[in-house]
Design a protein around this nucleic acid. Structure first.
Length: 398
DNA sequence: ACGAGACCTACAAA
DNA sequence: ATTTGTAGGTCTC
């Protein structure tokens, strides 16, 4: 991508704590954005190619090749797509004051904003997401666009396709073709779901499930029904309707509700969130150790109680912090220098009624070199951890 | 209601 | 060099 000439670009003053595209565009919400090595994000959106770039003071946008009328509509489109209306730092403050766990994690993950994607795009993307990683999901969505979507344009040697409509995916050959393209078992899900969506009324049917407070571009807001801990009625109805589709379980349905239909209270509970719930919110102790439907709903209700109407937004902050690609931000580059095991004692110990046990205690001295990302570059330090290892060995019957 | 397998693929880690 | 595990789950017994 050519030289970044920001003078031709439009800009919106915005702080990184209000929006951080480097995080928001690659934390697994949207799978079509590309980033050039000069830090320019690009994607085909609503019939045009959109470039984005951000520094500490401004968000810059540019629509190369677009007609003047399309350029004129880019600002409202960006406001809509990037969901710039809510005051994010205010929301972070209120989530932090309600929840010490959030308060501890959030400072390193500011500016994470839920995008307002098209419902159909979110649906397709998240059907692809099962048992999968973000890189491959992105590759799959790209293949879908290149094989079935409309060509939007070519610039700087890059071609841009938009997502295919559901109607473009109802052919009998689609499932086989998608399998060839490496979709695996998700090929059937996409093909079936496309047919079902067309059957139910296409993207208009999907949009009928939207949060009326977050309508599609150009449609006037209406107020949603009253708040409940389990989510508003419209959200519950949308979730239930989506679950009828092939390849759409509770988690994918919640992703579509949150990122494609504007229901801020939707909390997708995946393996990451379930682990967070167990580790930091005392879920899964004793009974209910697995993520059953009961537990799935309980986790969502817990977070909605804690964080309120935009619980899904807060959830995404903790989710992102848990992603492998971002975990370096918590502790980056841990290198083990030395590990020493010192025998301390070895003895036999009484165990109630059971007999004698051999007990071996060792001290583990672990020296690590840790690099942490600070404001200006990296900081290196050496950490020494000492832990006691207790190994109970054979049982000796009395 | 709950649990266990199977399901496609690619790529890192052992 | 092969094998194993895992990555934003869902469906079917």
């Amino acid at each position: 991508m050519g030289v970044l000439n920001l003078q031709e670009w439009q800009k919106i003053p915005i702080a990184l704590t209000e929006l951080c595209i480097n995080t928001s565009l690659r934390c697994g919400q949207s799978f079509r954005w590309r980033k050039s090595d000069q830090g320019i994000w690009s994607m085909a959106l609503h019939g045009r190619i959109l470039y984005l770039h951000q520094d500490s003071e401004n968000l810059y946008y540019h629509t190369p090749l677009a007609s003047d009328t399309k350029k004129d509509t880019s600002l409202p489109l960006i406001n809509h797509y990037l969901n710039l209306q809510p005051n994010l730092s205010q929301l972070y403050k209120s989530w932090s004051s309600a929840d010490p766990v959030f308060a501890r994690t959030a400072p390193k993950f500011t500016g994470i904003r839920i995008l307002r994607q098209d419902a159909w795009e979110a649906l397709v993307g998240f059907i692809c997401s099962s048992n999968n990683n973000i890189i491959r999901i992105s590759q799959m969505v790209d293949k879908l666009c290149r094989n079935y979507g409309p060509l939007i344009g070519e610039i700087e040697g890059e071609t841009y396709y938009d997502l295919p409509t559901p109607q473009a995916l109802i052919g009998d050959e689609v499932e086989g073709k998608l399998r060839e393209l490496g979709f695996g078992y998700r090929a059937k899900y996409i093909a079936q779901t496309a047919k079902m969506v067309v059957d139910k009324g296409g993207t208009e049917w999907l949009d009928s499930l939207r949060n009326p407070e977050s309508p599609i571009l150009g449609v006037k807001e209406k107020s949603a029904t009253e708040w409940k801990v389990e989510g508003r009625d419209g959200y519950r109805a949308a979730h239930q309707a989506l679950m009828e589709l092939q390849g759409v379980g509770p988690k994918v349905a919640d992703c579509v509700c949150l990122m494609g239909l504007g229901w801020g209270e939707a909390v997708p509970v995946d393996t990451h969130v379930w682990q967070i719930a167990q580790r930091d919110y005392k879920f899964g102790k004793g009974k209910h150790s697995s993520l059953t439907k009961i537990m799935y709903d309980a986790v969502g209700n817990k977070f909605r109680t804690l964080w309120g109407k935009e619980a899904g937004w807060a959830h995404s902050v903790l989710f992102t912090a848990d992603l492998r690609a971002f975990s370096e931000r918590l502790v980056s580059k841990v290198e083990i220098k030395e590990e020493v095991l010192l025998p301390v004692k070895k003895e036999e110990e009484d165990v109630d009624d059971e007999g004698l046990q051999q007990v071996e205690i060792t001290k583990k001295i672990l020296t690590k070199r840790v690099k942490e990302e600070g404001e200006d570059g990296e900081e290196e330090k050496t950490i020494t951890e000492i832990s006691e290892n207790i190994r109970r060995k054979k049982r000796i019957r009395r």
